[in-house]
Design a protein around this nucleic acid. Structure first.
Length: 266
DNA sequence: AAAAGATGGTGAC
DNA sequence: TCACCCTCTTTTG
């Protein structure tokens, strides 16, 4: 689930479901229990997404930082017909609840409470987030143009661009026709510009769909039918290129599995 | 039943 | 570069 689009979608959904009213805060799993007790009964004034990081601005003046990592998930559990919320499974690190809905967080890499400076320290390490209005594409441009690291590694580097993960890196490079092993500094201006524009539009689409679909709408069979995961990408997770049918190459790049089409990406 | 893997990241060397 | 953390699902035997 979690690349940047997931986090922005969570911020939006949580604002609607939870913001501005007193919340019940619990940590059945236990690791956030002391903090949850402090926050119980308080109000989240604002949910903020930055790259893959989610921040809750509480009325206590403190901030909760949530990072889903690879395994983290958020589940929304509405109350039943009698207004009773389902019991939280024991693995739930943090439950925030109103009278009508519970939002359960499991498996996050990080869930911690701290001062606003905590948020600033984290954001200071991040490159521009294509989903934020305040994103500066020139920072991305500079980060890529200066580096001899492969572009496939740079797209995963959160200090170069914040919010792109393994699926979007493969798909953005595919759409732009760029081979993942090319050093960043060898890309030409037009290629860097195309990459930025591509991640912006892919991530935006991801927020809308609440899932990753990188294949052009026009190439999807019937737009209303649900696209199976395997058909939602050009190269990622596939055996054969969705566009030309060639065997997809798959190897480790920056500790993750890279997928690329040898024909479509020179 | 066990193992492998997954859309992520850190810290130690 | 590697070990490791977090949880759950899918694949393998």
């Amino acid at each position: 689930m979690p690349e940047g689009h997931t986090i922005h979608r969570l911020a939006r959904d949580h604002t609607r479901l939870l913001a501005g009213r007193p919340l019940v805060a619990r940590s059945p799993q236990g690791r956030f229990a002391a903090s949850a007790a402090r926050l119980d009964g308080h109000v989240v004034e604002r949910f903020e997404a930055y790259g893959k990081h989610l921040f809750q601005w509480w009325d206590t003046g403190e901030v909760v930082h949530v990072h889903l990592g690879l395994f983290g998930k958020v589940r929304v559990r509405p109350a039943d017909g009698h207004g009773v919320l389902p019991e939280a499974p024991p693995s739930v690190r943090l439950r925030l609840a109103t009278d009508t809905v519970a939002v359960d967080l499991t498996g996050p890499t990080d869930c911690s409470l701290g001062p606003p400076e905590l948020r600033d320290r984290i954001v200071a390490r991040l490159g521009p987030d294509p989903l934020r209005r305040d994103a500066d594409p020139e920072r991305f441009d500079a980060g890529v143009a200066r580096s001899r690291a492969p572009i496939g590694a740079l797209l995963l580097d959160q200090s170069v661009v914040a919010g792109v993960g393994n699926v979007y890196r493969a798909e953005a490079l595919f759409v732009c026709g760029i081979h993942p092993e090319r050093p960043g500094r060898e890309l030409v201006d037009a290629e860097r510009a195309a990459l930025w524009a591509t991640v912006v539009s892919m991530l935006r689409q991801g927020v809308k769909d609440n899932r990753i679909v990188t294949v052009d709408r026009a190439e999807l069979g019937r737009p209303r039918t649900r696209v199976p995961r395997r058909e939602a990408t050009y190269a990622y997770g596939r055996d054969h290129c969705r566009r030309c049918g060639a065997a997809i190459a798959r190897w480790q790049l920056a500790n993750r599995t890279m997928y690329a089409c040898p024909g479509c990406q020179r």
